[in-house]
Design a protein around this nucleic acid. Structure first.
Length: 659
RNA sequence: CGCGGGGUGGAGCAAUUGGCAGCUCGUCGGGCUCAUAACCCGGAGGUUGUAGGUUCAAGUCCUGCCCCCGCAACCA
């Protein structure tokens, strides 16, 4: 019988910078699933890679003084290296700058154009010439360009559009009647927010930059990055718009699961299926939007604060400890959080105490009582049944869970078995049996049962923690490592000698280690934080918001600022925006209205009477309808997520110059 | 009234179609000595955010209210 195909993908990583641990969660998750499915008996094809086009990358390369290709070569290699650090077992690592992919995407674009699903139209809007960008009315600030503040003018530009509405009904029905969107809770979000209100035609070409795949029949246009990126799932498999697909494509498409971050669910559950419907290609079976891994203490600190990188974390704690944490600690449909404290707690409490210690004490007894030779289970007793039956039902239990992406629960099931084995030792007290020569056979049986249970755990764990699984089976010195070998209890051969007994996980002195880490990692990170948000999907298509380090300025530049002391004399909520307060600020000679986005940091009442420093010559702007004539200075502690007013102190004359 | 998710012992999470409120950590007490000061057992701790309603039965279904978090918006 031939094995059933199973095609799994991750989202391809955007090559704007080094990936952080949040991105790596996805690859570990996908890897665990891929490894498990292979072991379970599927013919798995696991694809990942990098998404390398777009204006943002063009800009980044420019800043770095290299060509876009040089830039993405470097970042892609770095991402690939990180995937390897995490132990990823992907079958193919693709890059969207691959000429093979480019040609396919061009052909697909042409096909959709010929079919009439893509048409040439005009992009209308307010255009800022120096910034070469279009803005909608709502994006304008005070009628001016939000980026540079200069005049904008109405303009039209030719562009290609994808008529999504052609497929709206078909898509709505598919989503409603299938379990395409996972987890289920996301289904309504997509339907209610985007699909049911009506799909607008999507602008699928750009002329404002050139780092992308050109439209071959109209080369001043570059194909929209999402069209380019999403296509990777089929182009590299051998999809051919003319119908001459490769065997690989015929075998593996449609994909069994696209594993993606919940933030890009929209692209994968709306644009992607519609593209496929338009191309007359079957739709993927499932899209799973996994939650985010947050770094830091509270929920507040997610995009702020400490970026943690894979290589640092793996170097510090070891690959399997990090994988364990990611797979075990992430809830199914809620964001999880990573802290060093919790990580160490898990390592000590579970990997060391439950798993490492069980293996160690079992092997130690076998060495001590049987000279390292695996004894035969010749004296079975009733008390063994519970352990054995639990071991026997665990594999299928995990298989069921993995088919639903319940990875954390699968890990839990393995550890429950290990806990049961620890309990079994107390129930059977082998050290007591060892004192009585007539109990030798019973003692051997107990130890055999333990080792066979460890074999079960080792085989199962191999999908999640490959190195550890390997070590466990190495200690048992067994070749019985297949999933099928778990259909019966007794695969371990008696009479063989154990392999070398190594420590699986070493205990960590939490306090000492935390101190060291703080010293090592604390000073950096603030400047690197900008990277966190950059992966966000939205930013790919919008103009990039520059968060980079500010350039050096001269004293003259500084002289252009007019800073004055003032006092808040009136404060109210902005009627139309949650995050904004509207203040009346007394500057001595005049009163200004200033809007400030600090609603989540301060109680409104506490602010009246607050002394402040104001940028007084800032060009006035309208924020959601309220005029703001200046800016209040505040200091921000990113770590604690709090703000503090900059002031000249109580009793200082209002309107004084600050310099 | 823009859309969606959520409030469960000190902490983090579970509870298929309504049917005895569970798990891990922590805490308190006990046991054991094979083992990486580990392992095993037991106890304490919850009127499941709040006010009503439906039902023989509600964490679960319905309604109002209070909080929190995403998306969108917005951050001078």
């Amino acid at each position: 019988m031939t094995k059933k195909p199973y095609y799994i993908t991750t989202a391809i990583a955007y090559t704007s910078g080094k990936p952080h641990i949040g991105n790596l969660y996805e690859i570990v998750l996908a890897d665990a699933l891929a490894r498990f499915m292979r072991s379970y008996g599927y013919d798995v094809y696991f694809q990942t890679g990098t998404d390398e086009h777009g204006q943002k990358i063009e800009l980044k390369a420019q800043e770095a003084g290299v060509t876009p290709q040089e830039f993405v070569d470097k970042v892609s290699a770095e991402i690939r290296r990180n995937w390897e650090i995490m132990g990823s077992s992907h079958d193919k690592f693709i890059r969207t700058t691959d000429p093979y992919h480019k040609a396919k995407v061009q052909k697909m674009f042409k096909k959709l154009y010929d079919k009439g699903d893509i048409y040439k139209g005009e992009y209308e809007g307010m255009y800022c010439t120096p910034c070469e960008s279009f803005f909608t009315e709502s994006q304008l600030v005070d009628g001016k360009c939000p980026d540079c503040g200069r005049e904008v003018k109405y303009a039209k530009e030719e562009a290609y559009f994808f008529k999504l509405s052609n497929y709206q009904k078909q898509l709505e029905e598919y989503i409603e009647t299938s379990d395409f969107i996972q987890p289920e809770s996301r289904k309504n979000e997509m339907l209610n927010n985007f699909i049911r209100p009506g799909l607008k035609d999507l602008c699928v070409s750009r002329t404002s930059f050139s780092w992308g795949i050109p439209v071959d029949f109209d080369p001043k246009h570059v194909i929209y990055v999402w069209i380019d990126a999403l296509s990777n799932y089929i182009t590299f498999l051998g999809y051919d718009p003319d119908g001459n697909h490769t065997e690989e494509f015929k075998k593996f498409w449609p994909a069994d699961i696209h594993l993606i971050g919940k933030d890009i669910l929209r692209f994968h559950t709306i644009y992607w299926p519609i593209m496929l419907m338009a191309l007359d290609v079957p739709l993927p079976k499932k899209v799973f939007g996994h939650p985010w891994l947050l770094v830091g203490e509270g929920k507040m600190s997610k995009s702020k604060g400490n970026v943690i990188y894979a290589d640092e974390l793996v170097e510090e704690f070891g690959l399997d400890a990090v994988r364990y944490y990611l797979l075990k600690e992430m809830p199914f449909a809620q964001d999880g959080s990573l802290t060093y404290e919790l990580l160490i707690e898990r390592i000590n409490g579970e990997l060391v105490n439950i798993l490492g210690n069980l293996v160690n004490r079992t092997a130690a007894m076998t060495n001590k009582y049987f000279g390292g030779i695996i004894p035969a289970p010749t004296a079975k007793e009733e008390i063994d049944d519970e352990l054995i039956s639990m071991a026997l039902k665990t594999p299928q239990d995990i298989a069921d869970k993995m088919h639903e992406m319940r990875v954390a629960d699968s890990m839990q099931a393995i550890f429950n078995l290990l806990r049961r084995a620890n309990k079994y030792i107390d129930e059977t007290t082998p050290w007591v049996l060892a004192k009585d020569e007539s109990k030798k056979e019973r003692l051997g049986t107990v130890l055999y049962n333990l080792m066979e249970t460890i074999r079960f755990a080792g085989v199962l764990l191999s999908s999640f923690l490959p190195t550890t699984g390997e070590k466990m089976l190495g200690i048992l010195n067994t070749d019985e490592r297949s999933f099928e070998s778990l259909s019966a209890f007794g695969g371990l051969k008696a009479g063989e000698s154990l392999g070398e007994v190594t420590m699986l996980f070493e205990r960590i002195d939490a306090e000492a280690r935390l101190g060291e880490i703080q010293k090592k990692l604390a000073p950096k990170n603030l400047l690197e934080q900008a990277e966190v948000k950059e992966e966000k999907a939205e930013e790919k298509k919008e103009e990039p918001k520059e968060e980079a380090k500010k350039e050096e300025i001269t004293i003259d530049d500084f002289g252009k600022l007019e800073l004055r002391t003032g006092k808040i004399i009136e404060a109210k909520k902005h009627p139309k925006a949650d995050k904004l307060y509207v203040f009346k600020v007394d500057l001595g000679t005049e009163t200004r209205q200033i809007v400030s986005g600090i609603a989540k940091y301060f109680e409104l009442e506490s602010l009246v009477g607050q002394n402040v420093v104001v940028v007084a010559n800032l060009k006035p702007a309208k924020l959601r309808g309220e005029i703001s004539e200046g800016m209040i200075l505040l200091a921000e502690d990113e770590e604690k997520d709090v703000l503090s007013f900059v002031t000249a102190g109580e009793g200082f004359k209002l309107g004084s110059i600050v310099k």
